[in-house]
Amino acid sequence: MNYSTINRITPYIFLAPAVIIMLIALLYPLGYMIYGSFRDWDPSQAIGESTFIGLGNYISLWNDPNFHESLTVTLKFAITVVFIEMIVGVGLALLLDRNLRGMSLLRTMFILPMMIAPVVVGLIWRYMYHPSIGIFNQTLEKIGLGSVDWLGQHALMSVIIADIWQWTPFIFILSLAALQSLPRSALEAARIDGASGWQQIIYIKLPLMMPVLIVTCLLRLIDAFKVLEVILVMTEGGPGLSTEILALRISRTATEFRELGVAAAMSNYLLMLLLILTIIMLAYNKIQELQAVRLRMAAEKEVD
């Protein structure tokens, strides 16, 4: 073997252990799940004993109204929370992006919810929503507005509020980072050009933050589709199917209904949904990169 071959394969040798672990840890369960999704599989059976039923699980899910319901709830939940979180998070970032005394303390406080374990968040909110002893209803009653059936009639809205409380900080810190990396002098130029505070936000800040905002939004969306613990603790999907998001339905299908094959197929539907979002995100990044390269090339050509 000569030096150049050795040089060429060295990096791969160093990468190999990590790649092997990745394959085992990531691809094996994934493959297992895909394999299982084509079978009529009860938890009491070993996978080998289950019968192969082709696309049976996928087809029956496609026609299952409960699955549709669950998908609708998931979409409603994910889109609503991300929409509101984006507005509130970006709004807060715009509001708090200034150098006042105590601002850094305030910022730290804002990101606390994100650091609490989801199960704990679920518990906290469940108590706060409690019909008689919860703080919300007690307060409402004290000021004479009557109580609200938080986790009953308005269950979806209640879990949405809890999620917004927990995840707005994520968007807040990313937006704040984006804001603080904006070119200061361009903003000063805008002030001199006569832009008011609002005009600076609309014409300068938001357009310049857009790449970060789009990626943040997609990340959040991917995450919102997978939410489980908080809702599990708060409502367990109920009442009825009103808060039964996909992740919850998958876990119930596997444990309660004992249909591992169907659960696997459902997971694959979710996976495909997330894959589409991820691909959009990667494509967006790629387009940005290509555009930057094109701009740079054009500028360089000019200089020659």
Binding site: P183, S185, A186, E188, A189, A190, R191, I192, D193, G194, A195, S196, Y203, I204, P207, L208
Partner: peptide, 29 residues
């Protein structure tokens, strides 16, 4: 406020608006 002082400024690092083309940059005010 700067906008009420009736002045224009040229910055050392130019401070152009990166997302606007030349015409838009020049006509912003």
């Amino acid at each position: 406020e700067p906008k009420d002082r009736d002045l224009a400024m040229v910055f050392q690092d130019y401070a152009l608006y990166p997302h606007m083309n030349v015409a838009k940059n020049m006509s912003f005010a």
